[in-house]
Design a binder for these strands. Structure first.
Lengths: 167, 167
DNA sequence: CTTGACCTTCCTATCGTGGGAAGCTCCACA
DNA sequence: TGTGGAGCTTCCCACGATAGGAAGGTCAAG
């Protein structure tokens, strides 16, 4: 992108320098190019990639967005909005708030795990005796657990009491 | 494992039934076997895997541990402790609390992202105008940002002002 | 001209999960 | 007894984002 700018400035960094300047590793810069998150870099006669300041700027944008947890897919949208001078800030805000909602969802899941584990650990002596409510909880026999089957597709199935006799 | 139990009961479920009963998909049961998290299942003459109640119990254990966010590696340890009747509960507690620490670390990271994003979103009009502090923050030019280079290995490098002239 | 730091492409691995193809088995029903 | 379909087998591929490494070319300083 911005070929003309590149031509007009004449400045260029190679991939290692661009990595250094942007905080994105050379490996990831090549990867981003391969998945078309960024356009193909111009090349020197020897095939070395060259980056001008505006491209490094884009890489830094990506790096910051990654640091905020945005997926590559979201970053694609954010980059398009960044380049779109006629954008609606509402769209940007939407992307950001959708992401916030996802993050909060994850946080709640993790907090639930922590709560359960801390509760169990609190009741565990943590000494040389084998008794352990943590193990007990994991090993608990389930009388009726809807949660245990929640995520699988429905299928025609035999009642649990109808196990077949082996061999 | 527990071959003799299997022999003594004679009961067996096939993989679909075991999946149903344990909450672990058939695909994952095969995967867990392939990575030796669980021992190879016994097979029928036709090659079908058979699972007895104690094996399903193990699968349910794994499922619960996964639900609490434990890695396969940690589950390997937990399973060993479960089977070890002479275990020290201290070891179990250690595995659990190490995991809690990891979870909390992740939570803090995510919360930091949320905080930043909500702060930015709060200052974004979110209307049809292009001005947007979210985009501005991502696009910000960095005067001096130690964070931007924090995770990369040190390398001999030219000062940023010494970019080479292209072509 | 040599050396070594850097670049190139290509392949591999991570982690846990799902999807699907090709082919075999089992069982119920006609 | 034949057939259809659900279920099983193995094998391969994909994800998302990243890192590591091998083999070979390039560049610049000494």
């Amino acid at each position: 992108m911005m070929q003309e700018t590149k031509m007009s400035t004449g400045w260029a960094m190679n991939i290692g320098e661009a990595a250094q300047a942007s905080g994105v590793s050379a490996k990831m810069i090549r990867y981003y190019e391969s998945i078309s998150l960024i356009p193909p870099a111009t090349r020197s006669d020897a095939g070395y990639r060259h980056y001008i300041a505006s491209e490094v700027h884009t890489l830094r944008f990506i790096r910051r967005a990654r640091d905020l947890g945005f997926s590559i897919e979201s970053i694609t949208r954010l980059l398009a909005l960044w380049r779109d001078r006629a954008r609606n800030s509402a769209e940007v805000k939407q992307v950001a708030l959708d992401h916030v909602a996802e993050l909060k969802h994850k946080i709640i899941e993790l907090q639930q795990m922590v709560r359960t584990l801390e509760h169990l650990a609190h009741h565990c002596h943590g000494d040389d005796r084998p008794e352990c409510p943590i193990i007990d909880e994991l090993a608990a026999s389930v009388e009726a657990s809807p949660a245990a089957t929640r995520s699988r597709k429905e299928r025609k199935l035999a009642p649990l009491t109808e196990w077949r006799i082996a061999s």
